[in-house]
Design a protein around this nucleic acid. Structure first.
Lengths: 159, 159
DNA sequence: TATTGTTATACTCTATAACTATA
DNA sequence: TATAGTTATAGAGTATAACAATA
């Protein structure tokens, strides 16, 4: 058995540079994703919006009257999975399901004033969380990261 | 309601540049992570190792005789969550739980010859999947991405 | 026939708490 | 008291399949 170190920083060195995993984008992406997600939840606190619920609210505010089917497509999830998210936002009175004249299958998602206000405030909190978490990255590093993540994300379309 | 486009590429433009979400690292990280994970599973196929099982095997091969507690620490998950992963790898005969003389609480994880061979072959497949998925990124872009992901990942330590 | 929203259901990943056997 | 491995359990997040209402 390898001896375990005592201090945080030494333990860090021991447990981190450790195998081929370190050279794989997927593994590092997962660890970084988990770190951001965890910090997001901590920043928004108990009772705050989850990342996916925040994302849905963002799109409803940007696209009032969007349908659930279109929203699910934008988020890259199934229609069925969106129901609980919209239930949550409706329970918070951040949006309402509204009947659309002309097609009675659709229920347009309309953000409330409270929803728009809550979204604005939450966005500020989220941006602060990202600024804090990414403080070690320069502005140009952040730009590069975004650009590369988008490039990878787009490959998912070609399936 | 916004009119829906017909072709894939037009739909793409419509559903993608859409809100503040595009400016958030967390959202883009999630989408990129999902894309990589999906491609990883497709590359390894039905019955192939899952990303987390592959990660565990990688560390066991790199650190023969590691304990489950130390492995869980390295992977950033709980001991209890590792049990099913090790059960899976043991069922595949890729490793064995071995009693350690001197401390009968510990069961050292020892990779089998088959496990080492399977790991080597799988690593090649995984690297091919990443090369394919990241073909649009230059070598220096890939290096930058890895470096930035590691920087973000490290912030998770300070909790 | 196709689409929208919905429900039922299941699977993966993860965490917390409690247990046992050791130390 | 503390640690290693384990079990039970629950909670996210996601997907598939089927359904009713509507087009």
């Amino acid at each position: 058995m390898a001896p375990r170190t005592v201090t945080k920083s030494l333990e860090f060195e021991m447990t981190d540079v450790v195998s081929d995993l370190e050279t794989l984008v997927g593994y590092n992406m997962k660890r970084a994703y988990v770190a951001i997600q965890k910090d997001f939840r901590a920043a928004l606190g108990e009772g705050g919006l989850s990342p996916r619920t925040f994302s849905a609210l963002s799109l409803v505010v940007a696209h009032p009257n969007i349908s659930q089917s279109d929203l699910a497509r934008m988020l890259g999830i199934e229609r069925s999975g969106l129901v609980a998210i919209i239930d949550d936002l409706e329970a918070r009175k951040f949006l309402s399901r509204t009947l659309v004249p002309g097609d009675r299958r659709v229920q347009a998602l309309v953000p409330t004033k409270a929803g728009i206000a809550a979204y604005g405030a939450t966005l500020v909190t989220v941006q602060a969380h990202e600024d804090r978490l990414l403080a070690d990255l320069s502005t140009s590093e952040k730009d590069t990261l975004m650009q590369l993540l988008m490039k990878i994300r787009l490959t998912d379309r070609e399936s």
